[in-house]
């Protein structure tokens, strides 16, 4: 079992084009990002700065924004879906 992370278009260059990545053995969103970094180097820097999640990145566990949960300490369960949603480009 694993959590499923949905990767937005601008980050798929780091995942070999994959729209979804499975992450094993992660208890929190923070663990998920650490595991992602191991498999897809560069991911952590795109998502986090020294204060936490970058202001323009929204991370959802299921349909909830982690800002309204426990932030990076938000717990994740096997089979849950995590979505990384960026800001919207032009037009």
């Amino acid at each position: 079992m694993a959590v499923i992370v949905r990767i937005p278009t601008p980050l798929r260059s780091l995942t070999g084009g994959n729209e979804e990545v499975h992450v094993e053995e992660a208890g929190t969103v923070s663990d998920v990002i650490d595991r992602l970094e191991v498999k897809h180097a560069g991911m952590k820097d795109r998502l986090l700065d020294d204060k936490g999640v970058r202001k323009f990145i929204n991370i959802y566990v299921g349909e909830e924004d982690i800002r309204f949960l426990d932030g990076l300490r938000t717990a994740v369960k096997d089979g849950e879906q995590i979505s990384i949603v960026p800001a919207i480009a032009g037009g």
């Binding site: 937005p8 601008p10 260059s13 323009f56 960026p86 800001a87 480009a89």
Partner: peptide, 8 residues
């Protein structure tokens, strides 16, 4: 960069 927060 591709992932940015400059909406629009």
């Amino acid at each position: 960069q591709p992932l940015h927060g400059l909406e629009g």
